[in-house]
Design a protein around this nucleic acid. Sequence first.
DNA 1: CATATCTTTTGATATTGGTCAAAAAAACGG
DNA 2: CCGTTTTTTTGACCAATATCAAAAGATATG
Lengths: 189, 189
Amino acid sequence: MERLLQHLKNIYDLNPELQVALQESFQQVSLSKGDYLIREGKTCRHLYFLEQGCLRGFYQVEDREVTHWFGFENDFVTSFHSFITQQPAIENIQLIEDCRLWSISKDRLNGLLASHHKAERLLRMAYEQYYIRLEERYVNAQFKSASELYEDLLDRTPHIIERVPLGYVAAYLGMSQETLSRVRSRLAH
Amino acid sequence: MERLLQHLKNIYDLNPELQVALQESFQQVSLSKGDYLIREGKTCRHLYFLEQGCLRGFYQVEDREVTHWFGFENDFVTSFHSFITQQPAIENIQLIEDCRLWSISKDRLNGLLASHHKAERLLRMAYEQYYIRLEERYVNAQFKSASELYEDLLDRTPHIIERVPLGYVAAYLGMSQETLSRVRSRLAH
DNA sequence: CATATCTTTTGATATTGGTCAAAAAAACGG
DNA sequence: CCGTTTTTTTGACCAATATCAAAAGATATG
């Protein structure tokens, strides 16, 4: 749990009461590679903090899977759309490695937000960070070529290539696996 | 200002004190078609609420402009990246029509957030909405063909086509102007 | 209202990346 | 280890979209 608290402190300082409340609110969850954290169609009632491991979010589009996101250590994980609106998720989240997570229910989180102004601030600031990140990825994805996208990934998030099968990475970058493979071989020579 | 208060009430109820504080914190701004609200390189110190009119955000990429976003009535407008981090903006925001806006400075906003738990909540919930919207657009943009993107736009945000020059719309959809034109003519026949 | 300017369309051609199929390489289980 | 399965690469071909150039249409301005 130290890692979660430290992560929150990096967003904005924690006061001792909130720290205690947080410790009482999160529960540890351990899951294995291949397990699903969230399944399409189920409403997502928990927010998770990923302490160790990595996972992917993907859509089932007709007969194939389209990975659109990866989570690593220190990421908050959920189907945001489902968790926020409490509608059924349209995506799946599946573990790429064994993971250790901390989980908090929506109700419990709402309790924290209602009773701690600072919790509300923390979450607001976390959303700010996530919003900026997503915006950056969006612009990137839309306006760059396959090889630019791959080189950017190498620059900015090299851990993705190291820990994730290339098929998932290709979908994440919005290209076919074959194209990614060709981009890589061109770059190597 | 009624429109702004109503919009905030739609996100989450306002108490009277916060309502007064908001009224004292926002200032009206009127600008003309073609004017810039934000210029690349300048740090963005204000958040705006767009009461009337429409505008676009665009990047200057080498020798051309890439429009990536439109704002309409009831949208909050700023370069979020710059406003949040207080780093120089990497995008421009320019008016497509004459606009009436309400503006609040970052400092003033921080004051409101510090003194009103409910302001913090409102902003957090606004970010939630904006996050979901962006995520939806992202997945859309990445995994659909030109004509699907255009038909989606017709379905979901027809006001964009009615009020924005097609050149900007094409960039927003991530295709060339010529491709958009051809998609439209195929659809018409 | 005529000219200049800006926006949209159309045509010809080039490029990028997709798909299908198969080979090669790597990882996995007994 | 060895065979099996999964992942990655390679090749041939095709489709979608980009680019460049020019025409047509719309809008604005003196």
